[in-house]
């Protein structure tokens, strides 16, 4: 891997005990350092690390490129993983909607605009981080609370059925790729 980072390395959080660090490069060539415990929260990244056979010695020399995630989202993800790396498994809720309360720190981390949040969800889905996915879905769910369908259309950017049909019609009428 010979990717030359243009931007200086971003040290997101000071790593205390764990000496094993990994480097991740986002789609816009931002480099992030993440600890082993934190990277384990992402199933995709951890599978990649185990498949590549990265060890404590060669981990920093071989940065992992993640093409589908930009620097901004990656920073949020790394912050989240570092924060929750020593968390215990959450208890099973009988009524998730009522019992689960989003922690304040995470609420502040995820208080971003809708477009960024949807992008973050896509990135989380790609990296397969279950906890962050749950939290993001919760934040999106909270946005829909006590809202009318019209308000939801504006918040989520959902087109009406008529607009959908018009788009489909225009797509079918337009000539396909000439070959």
């Amino acid at each position: 891997m010979s990717v030359e980072p243009e931007v200086p390395i971003v040290q997101v959080e000071e790593v205390r005990e764990n000496p094993v660090l990994y480097k991740i490069i986002s789609s816009d060539n931002h480099v992030f350092t993440i600890s082993e415990h934190a990277v384990k929260l992402s199933k995709t990244l951890w599978d990649l690390i185990t498949n590549l056979g990265l060890t404590a010695e060669n981990a920093l020399d071989n940065p992992i490129p993640v093409e589908n995630v930009n620097g901004k989202n990656m920073e949020t993800i790394v912050q989240f993983c570092e924060r929750h790396k020593y968390d215990e498994e959450e208890p099973e809720y009988t009524n998730y909607i009522r019992e689960f309360v989003l922690p304040e720190w995470d609420r502040q981390l995820l208080s971003i605009d809708n477009e960024e949040l949807f992008q973050l969800i896509l990135a989380t889905n790609y990296l397969d981080i279950q906890k962050l996915m749950d939290y993001c879905c919760r934040v999106i769910g909270d946005m829909a609370k006590d809202k009318t369908p019209e308000e939801l259309r504006i918040i989520y950017g959902i087109p009406t059925d008529a607009e959908d049909d018009a788009l489909e019609r225009s797509a079918s009428d337009s000539p396909g790729p000439s070959g």
Binding site: Y96, I97, D134, C137, R138, I140, G141, A144, K145, D146, K147, T148, P149, L152, R153, Y156, I158, P159, T160, D161, D164
Partner: peptide, 14 residues
Amino acid sequence: KLDFMSRVSLGSTC
């Protein structure tokens, strides 16, 4: 993650 009434609202969008 949505409650009952929010589901109804979302289901009514399209």
